[in-house]
Amino acid sequence: MTSAFPEQCFPGLPGLEASPAESRRSDVRAAARDTVSVGFGLFPLGLAFGLLLVQSGFAWWWAPIFSLTIYAGSLEFLAIGLVLAVTPLASVAMTTFLVNFRHVFYGLSFPLHRVRGRLAKVYSMYALTDEAYAVTAGKDPDNLSSRRVLFIQVFCQLYWVLGGVVGAVVGNAIPMQLVGLDFALTALFVVLALDAFRARRDIPTPILALLSALAALVVAREQMLMVAMTLFVAALLVRFLLHRRSGKDAVDA
């Protein structure tokens, strides 16, 4: 049985138009499976962020405020120090730009075109994080429905926000110092990179990524991430053009 009531109230959101309930549940289950490994990295990172927040003098309820307004893990950690130091807004803006500049490149291949509805697209752009991008990058875009993409992002945000709130509440009630949780972010990205490689078995891509990182390390150590991403995207574009030209030459022959 379907109903037109949700569609009339929220015409821009996917998943609210007349469609089988089982299809929605299937998308939710698929997104949960896609993000469960990410959750094992995001939740403890959120715990560490919540603990650091209250240890820095903030009340526990600042954790969800940071995570919902900023929602960028590395920048949220930096924001604690920036706020405490009363950093000028211009410096905050420049720091934000440099730290999150990589998201410009994510948008080139993130399956935003699969998301239906204006409000849904706005949320998907807001919730485009490293983890959400990595999860979708290892999958065939044709197999990603609008609801599945959105639920992947929703689950990723829930893991982070809940981890931050729990960490802040626990840290506020039981003062403690935990060491080593910061490595969870590195371990998480290693796992995501391995999953993406196993899904596509594309050997040249990680080689190009490694060479770009090494070149950036030598040329611009202070701005390594931005330079490495720029070199990597340029290398991928050149590879794409060469591949397309070779395919065209094969057809002409």
Rank of each mutant, 00 (worst) to 15 (best):
A4E: 08
A4N: 12
E7R: 15
G12Q: 08
L13W: 08
P14C: 11
G15F: 02
A21G: 12
A21R: 15
S23Y: 14
R24T: 09
S26W: 13
S26H: 10
D27M: 01
V28I: 06
A31Y: 01
T35A: 03
S37R: 15
S37E: 15
F43G: 01
F43E: 00
P44C: 08
L45C: 08
L47Q: 11
F49M: 07
V54I: 05
Q55R: 06
W61P: 07
A63S: 02
P64E: 07
S67R: 10
I70P: 00
I70H: 05
A72P: 08
G73W: 06
G73F: 01
S74I: 01
F77N: 00
G81P: 05
L84W: 12
T87A: 09
A90M: 15
T96A: 13
H103S: 12
G107T: 06
G107K: 13
L108C: 07
L108G: 08
P111F: 01
H113P: 13
V115M: 12
R118T: 07
Y123S: 04
M125V: 14
Y126N: 02
Y126G: 01
A134V: 00
A134P: 02
V135K: 04
T136Y: 01
A137L: 00
D140K: 04
N143I: 12
N143M: 10
N143C: 11
L144G: 04
S146D: 01
L150Y: 01
L150G: 02
F151T: 07
F155Y: 04
L158E: 03
L158T: 05
Y159L: 03
V165E: 06
V166Y: 05
V166Q: 11
G167Y: 10
A168F: 14
V169Y: 12
N172K: 15
I174M: 14
M176Y: 15
M176G: 12
Q177Y: 14
A187H: 13
L188W: 09
F189N: 02
A199E: 06
T205R: 09
T205Q: 08
T205E: 08
P206M: 11
L210V: 04
S212V: 04
L217Q: 03
V218A: 15
V219D: 04
R221Q: 07
R221K: 14
Q223N: 10
Q223C: 11
M224I: 14
M224N: 13
M224P: 07
T230N: 04
F232E: 04
A234V: 10
V238Y: 06
V238R: 07
R239D: 09
L242D: 08
H243M: 15
R244S: 11
S246D: 14
